[in-house]
């Protein structure tokens, strides 16, 4: 333990700062949660009060459950997010490994080309993407979303992962080659576990924008059976009237799965950092 960290004053200040930050970050979530259990009147009268016997109401949740097939929206969002992250990590890691491990002509150019997407927002190509999806008949399928989100996530994934893979010891990979492991085994069994923190980072970075996205579900998959949670919640937000109970309840339920995914990935992150290194 170093001196700065064992000093009680420093420790108090550090924890104070962290707790303050946590409160600020959690405050909106807290407000959404408490208000989702209140009547409409109570929400507007005292937005910050906790629900009591008078103001308690589950009307929001009831509306959400009646309106549309929320379980299905839930499932759609989950499938799209998990599948997209899976493909981003798989293809991103493979491309990153090829770029960092093998010497071939145009290696540098290929790396730059793959990283270019970081600077160009994918929404610029929305019209072309829509035309392409129409041509391939993928409109109103979850695949349309998964493909777009995978493309959207790959540049950053390749960029981050190739940087990390360059740091994996050459000796370790070579030991595997001498022991007769195939390139695939070396990739999956030796290299991937060592870059797990980076993979978790990439997953977290990608997960939240995908989960929250409204743009592409609205354009590519607005059908009832492919609606995502974000899109499904929009029915409660009207131009003239907004059903705040329902919106808040839908949001509260939408937070839960991301929270679970986040916990899973951050566990990986920590485990990756603390697992036995090469030397």
């Amino acid at each position: 333990m170093n001196k700065a960290r064992s000093n009680p004053l420093n420790s108090v200040m550090m924890h104070g700062a962290l707790i303050l930050y946590t409160l600020i970050a959690l405050f909106p979530v807290f407000v959404i949660l408490i208000n989702s259990f209140k009547t409409r009147k109570a929400i507007f009268r005292e937005p910050l009060a906790l629900p009591d016997a008078d103001s308690f109401s589950t009307i929001g949740y009831e509306t959400v459950m009646k309106q549309g097939d929320f379980l299905l929206y839930f499932q759609n969002s989950m499938i799209v997010t998990v599948a997209s992250i899976f493909f981003v990590l798989l293809f991103g890691a493979m491309a990153a490994y090829a770029l960092s491990e093998y010497r071939f002509r145009g290696n540098m150019l290929m790396g730059l080309y793959l990283a270019l997407g970081i600077m160009i927002p994918i929404r610029i190509g929305t019209v072309a993407i829509l035309e392409m999806m129409v041509a391939t008949g993928l409109v109103n399928t979850l695949w349309a979303l998964i493909l777009v989100y995978t493309a959207q996530g790959l540049p950053l994934a390749v960029f981050i992962l190739s940087e990390f893979m360059r740091q994996v010891s050459d000796d370790l990979k070579n030991a595997g080659r001498i022991d007769g492991l195939s390139e695939y085994t070396i990739f999956f069994r030796l290299v991937l576990p060592l870059v797990r923190p980076a993979m978790a980072t990439v997953a977290v970075f990608n997960m939240i924008p995908i989960w929250n996205d409204l743009w592409f579900p609205l354009i590519l998959a607005p059908a009832e059976e492919t609606k995502t949670l974000t899109l499904g919640s929009q029915v409660f937000i009207g131009q003239f009237v907004t059903d705040w109970n329902a919106v808040l309840s839908a949001l509260s339920m939408a937070i839960l799965p991301v929270l679970i995914l986040y916990v899973i990935f951050s566990r990986q992150l920590i485990r990756g950092i603390t697992s036995g290194a090469v030397k």
């Binding site: 000796d171 080659r177 090469v278």
Partner: peptide
């Protein structure tokens, strides 16, 4: 011939043990 079929074994400076 690939390394695993050459009838050799190698010991590396950084040990290069499989961590898992």
């Amino acid at each position: 011939t690939p390394p695993s079929k050459r009838g050799i074994a190698m010991v590396f400076q950084s040990y290069a043990l499989y961590p898992h």
